[in-house]
Design a protein around this nucleic acid. Sequence first.
DNA 1: TTCCATTGAATGGGTGAACCATTTAATAAT
DNA 2: ATTATTAAATGGTTCACCCATTCAATGGAA
Lengths: 256, 256
Amino acid sequence: MPVPTFRPIHTRRAFEEICERIREQLALGVLKPGDKLPPERDLAHQLGVSRNVLREALRSLEMAGVLRLLKGVKGGAFIQEGDTGRMNDVMRDMLSLGTISVRELSEARVHVLDLVVRLACVNARQVDLDALEDNIERTELATKEGRLLDRVECSREFYRLLANSTGNKVIAMIMDSVTEIHMRFVYAKVASSGVAMSRLADRRRQLVSAIAEKNAALASRLMGAHLEAVQRMLEQDPGAMSLHVALAEVRPGMRR
Amino acid sequence: MPVPTFRPIHTRRAFEEICERIREQLALGVLKPGDKLPPERDLAHQLGVSRNVLREALRSLEMAGVLRLLKGVKGGAFIQEGDTGRMNDVMRDMLSLGTISVRELSEARVHVLDLVVRLACVNARQVDLDALEDNIERTELATKEGRLLDRVECSREFYRLLANSTGNKVIAMIMDSVTEIHMRFVYAKVASSGVAMSRLADRRRQLVSAIAEKNAALASRLMGAHLEAVQRMLEQDPGAMSLHVALAEVRPGMRR
DNA sequence: TTCCATTGAATGGGTGAACCATTTAATAAT
DNA sequence: ATTATTAAATGGTTCACCCATTCAATGGAA
């Protein structure tokens, strides 16, 4: 039987129609990143809607990362390069709404990172390895100078570089989305307790050299062990894993 | 060095502030799914902004799946249960914008499905297996009766059930996001050529019994082989993989 | 009483005109 | 030539109003 599945209907509203049409032009390749839409007043007139309604549509597309709206003469609505950070926003909302749990996110992260590491073993180029090595050096420096929060930023970058070295932006995007919240927990923990994982740079060097040698089994094992160690550190203080603290906190350099 | 990274700034606009405040209340747990925001006119007054600006914010949150707006007395803006389909929208936009490629998406899908299958071997409960078995029976029926497009819908459901049997909604969400576009290609292919994979139900039965026996290696191998076969089928006709066709097409039962 | 049609209030959906703020280029003053 | 001024284009915001939908209250008919 064709499985009768009834999605809730809601009356079609003008702004939805507009969003859809613009997305359609995108999908068809008529609109491309860098292109500019007509001024709001013109476009509203062309579509036969009021400027207010058009703006609701443009706003939604802007929030979705499809458009960027700039003021002033020479301003306007420009099609953006895709913003890979949008998936992070979705994940954050899901967590805020209680649709997913921190546990599920952490578990997913472990598996995704295992995949990333294994793919990196296959696909990492020398430039990727160099970038990782460079990152580790910066991590060491930050450690020596006691800049603990900078070190957390380095970690964040380390994972990004790792994901990039898989050569697959979809996987990189997924990894970032399951990593962002986690890094907030780490950041909060480090900021409040001042503790820091020891021998971090050494561990990373081992991992990178395993990747360089394309030793997937070893790389996977090292990453797994590291993740467990970090998890133990975070769980020492149960309060540190408070969802609300991590989500509500705004900190510099971290996109909302 | 702490890596000077300059994100583009853009003047803070009222609607952004509003979105952020509402998300903050969500993160803090003050607002929960099912809660209702004050009427637009009241809330606008409370926030000291015009109703139009407030509406831009509400629209954005609605598109993000955070709110649902209902008309009429007893209507209003309600906090939604998280909509796990938002990640699909992000993926679709990324593809439309050319930020990611079909190749990257397909590759990611192969790896994610491998992970899903392996996790299912560990976590699948009897109800999950029963649901899969039931799905396979419906697939068989659709095949016998020549309802090919229904059969594609069954496939879509099969993957969802598989993902659910991992017991991890994050992973299920990720799988769905890398699967939706692919199913559009399959749908377009089947709709245009009328060809259909042979012995589909049998293959699925083998897979499910491997999962039931918790034989991860076998299950992984079976899934891998199946994905390759499907890929070959799709690639027979290069035109069938046209991005624009698959993305622009709207079909019943598939959310936009 | 019970049931159904009518009505009216609450709420989101949508419009149009006006004004503000920012940005840029053209123009004028030095 | 350089710098200050001005004007035009564009998004940001407000206000006042009306429409469409929904649902509860009301009231008349069976």
